[in-house]
Every structure is written in C-alpha cells, then in structure tokens.
Design a protein around this nucleic acid. Structure first.
Lengths: 211, 211
DNA sequence: TTCTTCATGTAATTAGTTACATGATTGA
DNA sequence: TCAATCATGTAACTAATTACATGAAGAA
C-alpha cells in the first residue's frame, strides 16, 4: 500500500478518516460496520482499525474522547476540521486501480498439475462464493428499498458502490459456470485439452488492435 | 495471506512452485513472466520472487543450479519430485475466494465529502484502466490465436484464466460508464442526490429472498 | 452463578514493499 | 567509450495479520 509521503497516512488511514466524516465512532463500531460494507472493497483486519485512529489523532485529523463502560475504558473518535480538509485533498487525487488477489483462479492457472477434478473443485467453490455474495448484496438492497438501511441519506452513493460489488460477484459466478461447462468436456488430463478458439476470438475482439 | 501451518509455505510460494512445474526459471525470468501473467491475479513485488525460491529449496521442493554470467552469479531453480507432490496437494485444496482492493471505489464511497467533480475523476480513471486492460488481454489472445504465445500447450487453460481477467476488466469499464452517467445527472453536492430505486431493485432481484 | 457473546484492546510475528547496489550487454 | 538498459540480487523498513488477554452484559 502506498503511503502518503507528507503525512505518513495510508489508504487505510483515509478509509477510517472517511468513516469519521460520516459520524464519530468507536473502533469496535468501525470494525462491525467494516465487515458489512468497506471490508468488501478494502479488506483489513480488526486490529488495524484500532490502531489507525491513533495515527489520525497524532496528526490532528481526529480527536479522541475517552469514556468508560463500567470499569472499562472506551474511546470514541471524531473528525476535526483539519481532518476534513485532508480527506477532501485525498478524494481529489485519482486513486489506485483495482487490485485482485484470487487464489482459486491461481489454482486453475496451474490446473494441469492437479488434474481436471481439482479444477472443477475450485470452480464450484467460486460459484458458491458468488451465490453467497449476491444474496448478501440483494439483502442490503432490499433493506434500503424499504428504508431500513443505515445512513439512508447515503443511499444514492451506496447504490453506486453496491452495484459494482454486485456486478463483480455476478461476473465471478457467470465465469465459474461457463468454465465448469468447458472443463467438463475436457479429457481427464487437462494438459491434453484442446483450446477453445471461439473464446480467444471473443477476448481478442474486445480490445482495440495494437497501434 | 494464509500460511500453510505444516510447511510454512504461503500462497505466493505455491505460485512460484507452480511456475517451476512448467519449466525451470531464474528469478529474473520469473519476474518478467509474472508481470505479463500471474501479476494480474496474484500481484507481488520483485524481491519476493527472488526470496521465495530459496524457501522452496530449503524445504526440498526445488533445487537450485548455480551458474555464472560473466563474473556474475546466477541461479536457476527447478522443481523436485517432492515439489510436484506438494503442488498437487495444494491444488486439491479449495483456494481462497477473490479478494478485491479498490481504492477508486473507496473514494467513490466517500464521494459526498469530495464533491461531484472528484467522483467523476475516479470514474474516468477506472474507465481508462479498463480500456488499457482490455487492450492487453486482446493482444495476448491474438498472439495465441496466431500461435505466437508462450507455452502454446497451455492455451486451453490460459483461455480460462484470461477470460476471467478480461471479464473483470470489462465489468469495471461498464460500471464506470454507467456510474458516470448517473453522477452527471446529480447536483453539485452528491449528498443531495436522489437515490436511484431502479438500481436497487435490480440488485435486490439478483439474489434469493432471505430464508 | 456460570456460560456465552459482546466489547476493547495489546503484543508478537510475518508477509510484503521500497530502496539500494552493482555487474553485464547493447547500441549510439 | 559512454549511456542506457538488462540482469541479479540484498537490506532496511513497514503495513498488516495472528494470537492473546480480559472486562461487561445478558441469557440459561
């Protein structure tokens, strides 16, 4: 992840800062919310979400109010004016393009060394994931349609990002189904499979000729 | 990344092992090849690609042949029989589902705090990336169609993975175009934008009703 | 009252990145 | 013969993960 040279903030820092711009949160609340939304496009572990707000406070971008729950100590973070300026500056810069890490696809890539059966296992897992994700996104969409989603005033923007995530899940599922059909017709040794020229031609047709 | 408890190997180790199963490589060759293929589904920096083969050798999964180029020293790694068994075992396990890290989308998510203009900038960058990627994938597909791609015996499998990556690039581009059209119709303050119910309804329709 | 889950963190470890260094080769 | 680029690595650093620890609140 690229660190902002001047401020020492990472993209993760800005993501938290963005949450604080919506309302003040405790790290625990941030973490629960993360699981339901941001985690799908910017996955980070819990402990990061406890750590980053401290950096924001150190830089004057957030302020911490210490409270207690029983004998326990709890911190709620809120954004400062300086924090809003920093967030706005970050949002004005073009961000990084999508980064994909896809182990199942990696295993398909090396499929000749594991056999046809192993490839089909990966594809089935991919399809299951896609179905799960689509069900989740659909449930969220239904919640907003009935006015029950959190931060209803953000619905317009959430529809943009939600649609991307839903489309992504869909593409995974469609690909897994298609690939399953293709691989089923292969011989047991995938190394002996005949390439499907139609697919290559389709991909070739989608991009411009080289200049 | 999850480490395999028994062997201490990471997914990155197995990815390199998979390359060695195709043929012996020097780390430099691995790195150049990575940029053109695996880097798109399992991105790692160069130095990792020098480091991991050593771990494979330590575990007996690969063997190093030291050579020289002029006065310089060079290493070529080859897979061992034990390495092939380890690879096969890894390929039999279902791998991790796709992980997406998408900064541009993150910035759209917080778009209300940066203004309509900033959102459109992110979307335009996304569209450019998609066009670039599609051109790259199309060029690769054309190379294989004319029999010029490396490892032609792997064409059938490469068409599977290539199609996924091409589809992914396409979904990014289609989304960016769609979102650009939606956002253009928004007022200057994205916080005041009216949500688009049709989109939510479409997402809701794609998943099953909750049980 | 005890168990479980919610809530709130810290510490230790590691995977990965950035930066640096330098020889070989090629072509202007 | 000089510069650029290809090739081959190592070292220092840091972002992120995993594992651990423990109090509070509610349920059985």
């Amino acid at each position: 992840m690229s660190t902002d040279g001047v401020t020492g903030l990472t993209t993760t820092s800005y993501a938290i800062l963005g949450m604080l711009a919506i309302k003040p949160w405790s790290p625990y609340e941030i973490a629960t919310q993360w699981d339901r939304s941001l985690g799908r496009l910017w996955p980070r572990t819990r402990s990061k979400l406890y750590e980053e707000p401290k950096k924001l406070v150190a830089g004057g971008l957030a302020r911490a109010s210490e409270g207690t729950v029983g004998r326990r100590h709890r911190t709620v973070y809120a954004i400062t004016a300086k924090g809003r300026r920093a967030l706005r500056a970050w949002l004005a810069e073009p961000g990084a393009s999508p980064i994909l890490e896809y182990e199942q696809l990696l295993e398909v890539f090396f499929g000749e060394h594991g056999g046809k059966r192993a490839i089909l296992v990966q594809l089935a897992a991919a399809k299951r994931w896609s179905d799960d994700q689509r069900a989740i996104h659909a449930a969220v969409a239904r919640a907003y349609l009935s006015g029950k989603g959190p931060f209803p005033e953000r619905t317009a923007i959430l529809a943009l990002t939600g649609r991307f995530l839903a489309d992504f899940a869909e593409v995974v599922g469609a690909w897994a189904e298609w690939a399953t059909g293709v691989v089923r017709r292969w011989p047991d040794d995938p190394g002996a499979a005949r390439p499907d020229r139609a697919t290559l031609e389709e991909i070739a047709g989608r991009g411009d000729e080289p200049t």
